[in-house]
Design a protein around this nucleic acid. Structure first.
Lengths: 181, 181
DNA sequence: AATTTATGTCAGTCATGTTGACATATCTTG
DNA sequence: CAAGATATGTCAACATGACTGACATAAATT
């Protein structure tokens, strides 16, 4: 069906004009890992995306609900730090989740300006389901590399994350020790 | 400054109403890996995002330019498969990259309907620069887990990717063997 | 000659991000 | 206590990058 010289630059010797390039690519760059990360993440978030459609929600709703569930009593300001979006942007999504009963707010005890966020049973059920899909994929992948590999993957992913200026959620995550650390 | 009971559900014993939950979270789900992937990918794409702003480009331009550079002579149809977007959506971004001289099209030799895509020297330079940023982060992370760990990470990421219905780029990627495979 | 395929394009919509301005309640500080 | 800072919410306008549906053109296939 398709018969192009796919990924075979040499087969387009010099039919190319002055600008077209099929040059040697810098070998010191991590092309393989870069692309594997792209595809892995695409499929990793693809599972929930499908499920979310049935609820009329998007990826943004998933992120909010996930972190509220995982860190009960999260403040709006903390959520903004984690998601790195503006409060206007968060506002729309959060309002929907509140209106439809996936999340509730409670006024802070110490500081009554704060609106602490909690997932409801309904919200919990949805997050669990979505996390279940992702867990299936992760477990399948981890099986291929064995128990020792799991720790390696964890350490790799941790090291990929910026540690300067961590938000409260990241602080919590980095507090949990990894083996050999 | 913030004094909420962060990530300490027990400290909100039952000030919660009927809906608010701070329940035990399912221990069989891979919460840690799920969150590490989220933050790792956020920072991984964050590096290029900043750089792209200076060019008036977005993440979409990066993806297109990356794959065109990496797989010279890529057809429009293949690009659509890889990116999983519609041709209308690709059209806008691709047009900009063509107009501004980052990519050129060549009519296919066998099939003159095809427009084969190639990065220009200008496009090449930009992709290299962006890949350089990401490579720095990846190398830093790989250093922490040693050479054997690198192969483990590669195998993990590969196993995270759907292998049914692979597009042409994925076929190429999966053809390259990993150690122990 | 008729049909299919590869690509491009017009028009409208949606989701999710942005800035900037401003309101309200509450806490902190002089 | 009064003044200012902080936490949150909201209005309005806009940008990006997705989407659907319809249609056009050129070239290949049948």
């Amino acid at each position: 069906m398709t018969d192009i010289n796919f990924s075979n630059p040499a087969a387009n010797p010099d039919s190319r004009g002055s600008e077209a390039r099929a040059a040697a690519q810098r070998a010191d760059l991590r092309w393989d890992i870069i692309e594997l990360l792209f595809f892995a993440y695409r499929d990793f978030v693809g599972d929930p995306d499908q499920e979310l459609q049935a609820f009329g929600f998007g990826r943004a709703h998933h992120r909010v609900l996930h972190f509220v569930y995982r860190y009960p009593g999260l403040k709006v300001a903390d959520l903004l730090d984690v998601l790195r979006i503006t409060k206007q942007s968060l506002g729309r999504v959060l309002k929907q989740l509140l209106d439809e009963g996936y999340i509730v707010q409670k006024t802070g005890n110490n500081d009554r300006r704060q609106r602490l966020l909690y997932a409801t049973a309904k919200g919990e059920a949805l997050v669990d389901r979505l996390a279940g899909l992702q867990t299936t994929r992760i477990n399948r992948a981890l099986e291929e590399i064995g128990p020792a590999g799991t720790e390696t993957v964890r350490r790799f992913l941790r090291a990929m994350i910026d540690r300067d200026d961590p938000d409260k959620v990241l602080e919590t995550i980095f507090k949990a020790p990894t083996a050999k650390e």
